[in-house]
C-alpha cells in the first residue's frame, strides 16, 4: 500500500527526515516511534500528500502521493475538529466536502459509540470523545489508508487502552491499512504489524521490526519486542542525539 524509498524532507534549513525507506502491504498496520521532533508528523504529512518529499520516492497504492487521494484519511495530533461545527457536522465534514450523502457520518458515530453526542460542540467533549469524533470523521469516508498522529497521547491510561482496543476492532472489521505515530513503545507493539523506530532529528530508521503478537498485551513475544524496540530507540538517541 505504501512504499517509501530513501525519502527525505527539509523545512528550509531544518532537515526533518533523511533516507527513510519502508514498505507496508495493504491491510497491515505500521507503528512509528521516535523521540519528539524527529519528524514523525512530517512523515505522515508526506504520506497524506500535504508535503512533497525533497528526495526519494514515495507512493501510495502504486501512485505518487496526492493530497486529494480519496482513500487516505489523516487524523491529526490535535484531532482537527472545527469548533463551530457540532459533533455530527464534524463527522460529516469529509462527506460534505466530497459531496456525498451525510448518513454515513451517523453510522460512523454509532459504530464508534458516540451517536448520542451528535448535537454537542467539540468543546463540550472529553479528550477521548473528541478522539472518537475524529476517528468517526475518517471512518465515514470508508478509507483504505488511515494515518494517525499520536491519536491517544492526550488520554489517560484507561481511556487510552480502551481507544487502542477500539482501533484494533476497527482494523479487524474493515481491514484498513493504518500508519500510527506514537510516543508509546507498548502502544506501538500492541497495534503495529510493523514497528519502525526513528532516530532524533533528522529522523532516520534505526530499527524496523515485524510483530507477530499484534493485539496481545500479555504474551512473552510482546514483552520481548517491547524491550527490543526500547533498545533500538535508546541506541538511536545515543548515536544520533
Amino acid at each position: 500500500m505504501i512504499r517509501a524509498e530513501s525519502v527525505g524532507y527539509s523545512y528550509k534549513e531544518t532537515v526533518a527526515l533523511r533516507d527513510v525507506s519502508f514498505a507496508l502491504p495493504a491491510g497491515q498496520t505500521l507503528a512509528v516511534v521516535g523521540p519528539s521532533g524527529c519528524g514523525k508528523t512530517t512523515l505522515l504529512s508526506l504520506i497524506a500528500g500535504l508535503l512533497e518529499p525533497a528526495t526519494g520516492r514515495l507512493t501510495v497504492a502504486g501512485q505518487p502521493i496526492n493530497p486529494r487521494r480519496p482513500g487516505t484519511s489523516l487524523i491529526m495530533q490535535d484531532y482537527g475538529l472545527l469548533p463551530w461545527k457540532t459533533v455530527r457536522e464534524n463527522a460529516a465534514l469529509g462527506l460534505i466536502i466530497r459531496g456525498l450523502p451525510r448518513d454515513r457520518a451517523d453510522q460512523a458515530l454509532a459504530e464508534i459509540g458516540i451517536r448520542e453526542l451528535g448535537d454537542r460542540w467539540p468543546h463540550q467533549l472529553s479528550g477521548g470523545q473528541r478522539q472518537r469524533v475524529a476517528i468517526a470523521r475518517s471512518l465515514a469516508l470508508d478509507p483504505d489508508l488511515l494515518l494517525m498522529d499520536e491519536p491517544f497521547s492526550a488520554l489517560d491510561a484507561l481511556t487510552r487502552e480502551e481507544m487502542q482496543d477500539t482501533l484494533l476492532s476497527i482494523w479487524q472489521r474493515h481491514g484498513t491499512t493504518m500508519v500510527l505515530v506514537t510516543h508509546s513503545i507498548t502502544e506501538a507493539v500492541y497495534l503495529g504489524h510493523q514497528i519502525m523506530v526513528l532516530s532524533p532529528r533528522p529522523g532516520q530508521v534505526v530499527g524496523h521490526f515485524q510483530n507477530p503478537s499484534v493485539g496481545d498485551r500479555r504474551s512473552r513475544a510482546y514483552h520481548e519486542l517491547v524491550n527490543n524496540v526500547r533498545d533500538a530507540l535508546e541506541k538511536g538517541v545515543a548515536q544520533h542525539g
Partner: peptide
C-alpha cells in the same frame, strides 16, 4: 494552520477552507 490542514487532509479545496474554516 491546524484546522486548515485538517480540512485539506479531507480533500478540501480553497473554497472549502474558506467556507468551513
Amino acid at each position: 494552520q491546524g484546522l486548515i490542514r485538517s480540512v485539506k487532509s479531507l480533500g478540501g479545496s480553497e473554497w472549502h477552507i474558506f467556507r468551513h474554516v
